[in-house]
Write a protein that binds this DNA or RNA. Structure first.
Lengths: 411, 411
DNA sequence: GCCATTTAGTTTATGTCCTGAACTATATTG
DNA sequence: CAATATAGTTCAGGACATAAACTAAATGGC
């Protein structure tokens, strides 16, 4: 069971090498040119020919297929003030979309993302998922999905596929969650068939940090082709983008920054190890260090987190120090990760984004202390992604798959 | 799914998408089938047609081009005991080769590697390169190369390209060594033009650990498509193979295991950081911990290393403990790296291979302590590569490039 | 108002390359 | 020596990109 390892993409058809493959490749080429166009840009066939290095004749023929497949539509345009025959604008079909979904510890979410990667509609439902079985959660998510499917119908949107993000290790090809300690799941098989209406063309399962990294990618400059996204949720996840592609490693679990060893003689971790980053910079670890550990005042985690922010705002030493300590450890983990991956940009999301002002000084100092030769080029960014980040990323990745295999939709 | 950055291969021609590209792809396909054949296997055109999924007609035509390019030769075969027209055997041209070279701290080396990846001839010249300028070392290497070129001439071998491995960070596209602290080099531009005879088709520069990883790959089972090679030389390098391709990261420096942070409050490292693996498990660190630090008895490093092995053989506590301590730290670094890369096989080369029996127990214990959930699946192997490893790997990689771009040689 | 100019897009002839089927070449078996 | 089996080549046909010619539809100058 060989997995496409580094990107989990439907690899270029490696079957025979016939002339037909050229057309497949060129369909992708044309489509990617159209997809890369700016928001209000309406490329003509002539523009595409120039950008894609194909001839006008080829482009016309390829575009005809894409129109037939419904991936692209024509928009008549009369360019004022210029001579010559006016061009016909071509854009990605705005009525085609993909459903993105997320199951997190404290909520479920779903939304519709168009072929441009824009979130058209979404719903977030608070829900305590820890302890629920997968099927219970999926039932709730299925209802949320139904609501969005109706919204899609009323707006004339066609749903072409779906992506689901969960906070844990996944085995994508079998729709299985291998481990999601924060959900209390071990080896849960997800029956995702009911989440989407027919005809879906593709459904994929993602780790939450990986999906968020994909969403973050959309927000970055086009030249930022490499970065590490660090997701501070209940656990600490990581998603790595290399050469503008998600790098997931041989079994799809690369980027697990939360279990990088920071203190060889440190505390026991939930993973069974010792001294992992999560034991110092995980949500519960920070809370505990700030004197707000589980059980304090019988408060829920949400309440304790609120208390933490209050304490930070008022400058309470124990809280400030707890976060600074986490920042120091994050700096160490980042130093090692940057060395191993050879990336120079790190984007922090989740509670790390929220804690930024208290985290950053210690983190930067630690990075300079432990890897001065790369610290100066390193960029540490705060992610603006909110609760919809993971679902958008999951959907966007499925959109990417569709755009890279348009011939599956061409008759 | 573009791939260039992660594998540094001559990417599939991403220019226009013409019918001619099909032929290029099919040339590669046919050639890779021939290259994948066993040592004594002589595939016929019919065999190739079956294995490559192409028709006999196509294969005949493609093979004709490969014969013309000199990459493949025919060997007449009469298969006894079978009916039908006998087949004509096809094998990679055994008279084509690539020169692999290495500059290390204590020696320079060069050798000829055929298209099958076999080392045909080689020379190793002890030389203290630390302190020499790049041009001095290259002059010496050029002489060694001349010797091998004469050997090649006398055996009728044609040299198609070359690869050079150095113990440091390289910028391949400019033939520049950015840093090689153990050679005392900073930003050295290598004038490699004189190292090879014309017509060379390709020359590449490698980090030593990366090149060794490529050589190790040749020794692994075909299904071992992912592993981390850890090279214990004067420094500690790493080479990562993902999905049977070298992963070098955005700037080509991924895998720097030597500067993973093991002890956040540890010793200052030569890289400027603190607590890096090299400060504990580097050659000098182990020697120092064993009471054989630089300057001891005015002995050279080679002599001190000999003393270390003697002390280990006789069970001297301080030496045994020094190596065990290094093993523990290696276990920590490996735990983090396996988590970040999601590979499960690690191969140890250089002095780590030599120290295996003293290193392994502590390393395994440490890995189980710090990452028990993955330690059981992890395989820690000892590399049998000797001093020719890096040069073979560098050459083999260039061979791979040639076999993946045969159309450059086809008229 | 008309014609030259300009740009968009289509049509057509051509060449490349793969495919499948027919065909040739060369062996073994009875 | 004929039947059979396997290897490899030849040839007609189709898919596709290309370049150049051609049609379509606007603007601008006179």
């Amino acid at each position: 069971m060989r997995q496409p390892a580094t990107s989990a993409r439907a690899a270029t058809p490696s079957a025979p090498g016939s002339v037909g493959d050229v057309r497949k490749a060129n369909l992708v080429r044309v489509l990617s040119v159209i997809a890369a166009a700016g928001e209000d840009q309406r490329l003509s066939r002539a523009d595409i020919a120039q950008l894609s290095q194909l001839t006008k004749a080829s482009v016309s023929s390829l575009v005809a297929d894409l129109l037939a497949a419904g991936l692209v539509i024509e928009i008549g345009v009369h360019r004022d003030g210029e001579r010559g025959r006016p061009s016909v604008g071509l854009i990605l079909n705005p009525t085609r979309c993909v459903m993105g979904m997320e199951i997190n510890v404290d909520y479920i979410a779903a939304g519709l993302v168009d072929l441009k990667g824009k979130l058209l509609a979404h719903g977030i439902l608070p829900r305590t998922n820890h302890g629920s079985t997968a099927s219970e959660v999926l039932t709730a998510l299925g209802e949320l999905s139904q609501t969005l499917q109706e919204a899609a119908r009323s707006q004339g949107l066609m749903i072409l596929g779906g992506g689901l993000a969960v906070p844990g290790l996944v085995q994508e090809d079998q729709f299985t969650v291998l481990q999601a300690p924060n959900l209390g799941w071990v080896e849960q098989n997800l029956d995702v068939a009911s989440l989407l209406p027919e005809p879906k063309t593709r459904f994929r399962l993602f780790n939450e940090a990986n999906a968020s990294a994909l969403a973050q990618q959309q927000l970055m400059d086009a030249q930022d082709r490499d970065f590490l996204f660090v997701s501070g949720e209940v656990g600490i996840g990581g998603g790595l983008i290399i050469d503008a592609e998600l790098f997931i490693g041989p079994q799809g679990h690369a980027g697990e920054l939360g279990h990088v060893v920071i203190e060889p003689d440190g505390k026991r971790c939930s993973c069974g190890g010792r001294g992992c980053l999560e034991t110092i910079a995980g949500q519960e670890a920070i809370l505990a260090a700030a004197g707000l550990g589980a059980g304090t005042d019988n408060a829920s985690r949400q309440e304790r987190i609120s208390q933490l922010y209050q304490a930070l705002q008022s400058g309470t030493d124990v809280a400030v120090n707890a976060v600074a300590e986490a920042g120091k450890s994050l700096g160490v983990a980042v130093a090692s990760a940057l060395r191993l991956y050879n990336v120079s940009t790190v984007v922090f999301g989740g509670h790390f984004a929220a804690l930024e002002q208290w985290l950053r000084p210690a983190m930067e100092a630690s990075l300079h202390e432990h890897a001065p030769s790369i610290a100066d080029q390193a960029r540490l960014l705060r992610s603006p992604l909110g609760q919809t980040g993971a679902l958008v990323g999951a959907a966007r990745s499925v959109v990417g798959d569709l755009l890279e295999a348009p011939y599956q939709l061409v008759d």
